[in-house]
Design a protein around this nucleic acid. Structure first.
Lengths: 200, 200
DNA sequence: ATTCATCTGTACTGCGCGGTATAATCCTCC
DNA sequence: GGAGGATTATACCGCGCAGTACAGATGAAT
């Protein structure tokens, strides 16, 4: 609702957001109560409703934040996606991320989207944009490789980019269910091998 | 709680389950109240608590039912997974299923798992088993093809099977977010192409 | 020091939710 | 036809939830 103006206000809002993000990733948005977030973040109700109109707005804000966070975190990698090393780095980063959460959260963005996509159109659209931006980065990289003659001229860049996004999301989901990165690792490796099969 | 014995009882329990399954797929388990299920299915509270101990038991029952339903629906296909036609049929079936839901539900099993995997260990394990059984069917098929010499002897059957499961789940999730089968279709086609690249 | 907007503490409300209690019906079998 | 379990109707309970009211604290600017 109100954007914070002072330093203290920013910190408070931030603490709520970060804490909510963590809880949402573990137990979903519907499975997390506002009180729980407030207790965990050491804030009060008045503070919450000073910065957010209602729970839905919090959810959307957190989701948007996670999206920007992820895209920022991967921005360096995205720029290297015009080389095999870049894709290897992408795979490694994803696997590393999964392990750092001990395979508990899967993909926070994907999870929240899966939970709310049908009931919250805004969340759905934000997620769609997220996938679009991810895909665009991959398309850029593959196109560059194609232009440099590293990929066959008839390579279906668009379809491959969709494919990569799909594999990434699927791998993250399965690692969450299996509590292990094994299948994710195998899948990502095969994905890379498939990309490389388009070498000219 | 109580298993129904009479015909009427079975029908009542069935109606609750089917209705819950539909609602869970659209709005998640936490996003669906018992009252909503009862209203929609035309049953009463006493009937619900006659057949289910609590909401968790309903959720697990519905989830288990969905799993068995899916495996049964695919059992014929699973037996044909020792041929390229079999995999094509699998892809077509998945796409057809997505379209029949107008891309609203994605994968009911995957969605519920994503929502509850971290908070309900039983749901998580059931889902894991589901993926295992799916993978096993794929492994059987690919192994048969390998033995028949249609796949190269060094083919990583296990890894490929994981890969297929991952792609299927990822495709279903993205179709839900994108409200379209386009990316799913492209991904599944590329998956098949990759499998076929292992031809000997 | 006073002012004034920002920020925060606390107590409260109303309601929807999961779950219970009790008793009434239905059906089958003897 | 009536005994007895299976099934169903209805009213209810208590709690946790999202959201509100309002007063109090903070702190920078003048």
């Amino acid at each position: 609702m109100n954007r914070p103006t002072t330093r203290k206000g920013c910190e408070t809002r931030e603490r709520i957001m970060v804490c909510a993000a963590r809880l949402f990733a573990r137990q979903g948005a519907r499975g997390t109560s506002i009180d729980e977030i407030l207790t965990e973040s050491g804030t009060g109700k008045s503070q919450f409703y000073h910065y957010f109109r209602d729970k839905d707005e919090l959810i959307r804000s957190v989701h948007a934040m996670q999206i920007e966070r992820m895209l920022a975190l991967h921005s360096v990698i995205f720029e290297q996606l015009d080389s095999w090393e870049g894709f290897e780095l992408l795979n490694d980063t994803v696997l590393h991320l999964l392990e750092s959460q001990r395979f508990q959260d899967g993909c926070p963005i994907g999870s929240l989207a899966s939970e709310l996509a049908t009931s919250d159109e805004l969340v759905r659209m934000d997620t769609e944009q997220y996938f679009d931006r991810k895909k665009a980065a991959i398309v850029r990289g593959l196109t560059a490789m194609k232009l440099r003659g590293e990929l066959r001229p008839d390579t279906d860049v668009q379809g491959l980019a969709d494919f990569v996004v799909v594999v990434l999301q699927g791998a993250k989901l399965l690692s969450k269910v299996r509590r292990s990165a094994d299948c994710a690792q195998a899948s990502l490796r095969h994905m890379l091998l498939y990309l490389q099969s388009h070498r000219s």
